[in-house]
Each structure stands twice: as C-alpha cells, then as structure tokens.
Simulated assay, not measured.
Amino acid sequence: MDKLSVMNAFCRIVERGSFARAADDLGVSPALLSREVKLLEESLGASLLSRSTRSMALTESGRVFYDEALRIVSAVGQVEDRIRKGAGEVGGHLKINAPSSFGQTAIAPLLPGFLRAHPKLRLTLSLDDRVVDMIEGGFDLSIRIRPTMPDSTLIARKIGIVRQRIFASPDYAARNGTPERPEALASHPIIGFLLADHLTQWSLIGPGGVIDMTLDPAVRVGNSLVLRDLLVAGEGIGTLPDFISRAEEAKGTLVRVLPDYELPAPSIFAVTGSRVGLEARASAFIDHLRDGLQRGHS
C-alpha cells in the first residue's frame, strides 16, 4: 500500500465529505477509494470513518489520522511547489507517451516553449495510438484520450476534453450535398477511424437528445491525420477531434456537417504511476500542456 497516496486520498475524502466527490477529483472510482480506506483501516487496526447510507463522520482515530496526514501531505506539496517554481531547475529525463495525431497536432507545437523554459531537461516523446503499458515501457507520463479511465494503480488527471464533430470538404458538399438530418448520413460515403469507439456505432447528441445509428464506413483508416486528408480531398464525410479540425475549419478546407450534432466528448487524461506527488518534470509538463490546451480552446 502506498501510504502517502492513501493519506492524500483520505484527506480529500474528509475535505469533500463524500467518496464520490473525492473520487471525481482524483480521477478514480468511489469503489477504489473505499477499498483503499478499508485496507488502511485494517492495517491500522482502527476505524477511521463512521459511515451510513446517508452520512459520514470521522472517528476519534480518524481525526488524529486526518490531522497528521494533512500535515504530511501539505509538507510534500510545499516541497513540490518549490521545485516546480524554480524555472530552469526542472531536470532529468522525462519520457512521455501520447496518441500519434494528438502528439503531432497538439503537443508538438507546445514543445519548443516547454524546452526553452527547462533547458536542463532531457525529453523522449513516443507517439503510439495503442494503449501501452507505461510502467513496462518506462514512461513517466502517458496522455490518453478516452471517455473514462478504468481503475488501476495509475493516477489519471483530467486536463481537458475533445469535441468530436462531423466534417466534409466544401468541394464534397458542392458535388454531393450534405445530409440535413442524421438518418441521411447512411446515403453518403463515410470515412471511419479504425481505433475509434464510434467506428460503426454513432451516438449523435443534438437538440432533440441522442440519436443512435449504425453506419458502415466505406473507407477505414488507422490514423486521424490520414482521415483528415481524405476528408479535405472530398472523399466523403467523417468525424474529427477538435485538435485536428480546428485549423482546417479556420482555413475553410473543411466545413461542419449537421452542425447542431456532435459525438460524445472524451476526456484528455494525463496518467502517471504515482498517486501522491509527481516528479517536478512531469508536473511541469502537465501544467504546460493544460495551459496550452486551454489557450487553444479560447
């Protein structure tokens, strides 16, 4: 059991007054937090929380543990803050894994500024659309885009969301027209992303709620940038994440199809192996990426 991790989680549970709210803050499930607290109580031989279906309160032992845990977690946080704030002092070797298209379009433009801010840092960026075992691969940080993160020993921090909309080129629209309602998509050539959850099953969120449909993409590709290029070339209709579509919309090479509808927005998670504190280099990169993503959406 990672005691510092559990201390951090326990403090968050007490402060938020709820396993569910604390779990949402930490990017894990309430069930996982409940198991961790139960293991903690078993290791201490004492009950820390008095729980019922409607309320939760600290026991006497829980109050003692909370006060000491808060002091320790705060001290660790202060040390980390001092390290992070030392501009140019972040060093060592940072190994990052990220999806290919996200790495090329969202991360790559932010790297020069990050590297200039931290000249003592060595960086390895590996781009792979497969979900890799970051511990086995020796990665300090993995960027993952998905609806939710499963329970694991990893800690996932949500740093943004991805809007997914439907696009075609102006040339395609001029030659073939575009559907005026979701059901009409089936009469158009669809270009699909092989690794997407919505390759053939689309759930479109629109003014009237959610419309579920089954589509059979005529062309299926394993890279979002190839999909983008096919759409720009006028080969059909498909969905793109906003970190790819934004530039094409601005240039006018792609236009939205069914602009009142979009697919569910997955989250961008920064995943690390520690549940307590981050190495300064990983924390610095997460902050830099989060800020860059926010600027991109502003």
Rank of each mutant, 00 (worst) to 15 (best):
134 M>I: 13
132 V>S: 02
123 L>K: 02
158 K>F: 09
239 T>Y: 06
275 R>G: 14
229 D>L: 06
157 R>M: 15
11 C>G: 11
264 P>L: 03
46 A>Q: 10
102 F>N: 00
259 P>S: 03
111 L>F: 06
231 L>S: 02
6 V>S: 10
81 D>F: 15
241 P>M: 01
233 A>P: 12
61 S>I: 10
76 V>M: 15
62 G>F: 03
248 E>H: 09
247 A>Y: 01
58 L>K: 02
236 G>C: 02
241 P>D: 03
217 P>Y: 02
209 G>A: 02
1 M>P: 07
39 L>G: 12
27 G>K: 04
145 I>A: 03
62 G>H: 06
84 R>F: 09
38 K>T: 11
25 D>P: 05
61 S>Y: 09
203 S>N: 13
120 K>M: 14
132 V>K: 08
209 G>L: 06
166 I>W: 00
76 V>N: 11
95 K>H: 05
116 R>C: 05
126 S>Y: 11
98 A>E: 01
269 F>T: 05
19 F>L: 14
125 L>T: 08
244 I>P: 00
20 A>Y: 15
49 L>H: 03
249 E>Q: 06
84 R>H: 04
153 T>W: 12
55 S>I: 09
222 G>Y: 03
293 L>N: 01
240 L>K: 04
175 R>I: 07
268 I>S: 01
199 L>T: 15
285 F>Q: 01
292 G>I: 01
276 V>M: 11
161 I>A: 13
279 E>Y: 08
147 P>S: 12
294 Q>A: 12
162 V>T: 05
201 Q>P: 14
195 L>K: 05
23 A>M: 08
167 F>W: 01
32 L>C: 07
274 S>N: 13
130 R>I: 10
101 S>A: 15
38 K>A: 14
115 L>Q: 07
151 D>H: 09
227 L>M: 13
140 D>A: 03
166 I>N: 00
243 F>T: 00
138 G>D: 09
213 M>Q: 12
174 A>F: 04
246 R>M: 03
75 A>G: 13
103 G>I: 12
61 S>K: 09
87 A>F: 11
223 N>L: 05
223 N>V: 04
238 G>W: 00
241 P>Y: 00
12 R>C: 15
11 C>N: 12
54 R>L: 09
239 T>Q: 10
260 D>H: 04
258 L>H: 00
84 R>D: 12
188 H>I: 03
30 P>G: 08
239 T>N: 10
3 K>V: 10
243 F>E: 00
53 T>H: 15
262 E>G: 00
117 A>H: 04
236 G>Y: 03
159 I>C: 02
103 G>R: 05
131 V>M: 12
239 T>A: 14
90 V>A: 11
170 P>N: 03
186 A>H: 09
102 F>S: 01
218 A>E: 14
23 A>K: 11
27 G>A: 08
15 E>V: 08
158 K>P: 09
116 R>G: 04
295 R>M: 08
83 I>A: 14
254 L>N: 00
168 A>V: 00
31 A>P: 02
44 L>Y: 12
226 V>F: 13
56 M>P: 02
204 L>S: 04
211 I>N: 10
100 S>E: 06
41 E>R: 12
278 L>P: 05
253 T>L: 06
115 L>G: 01
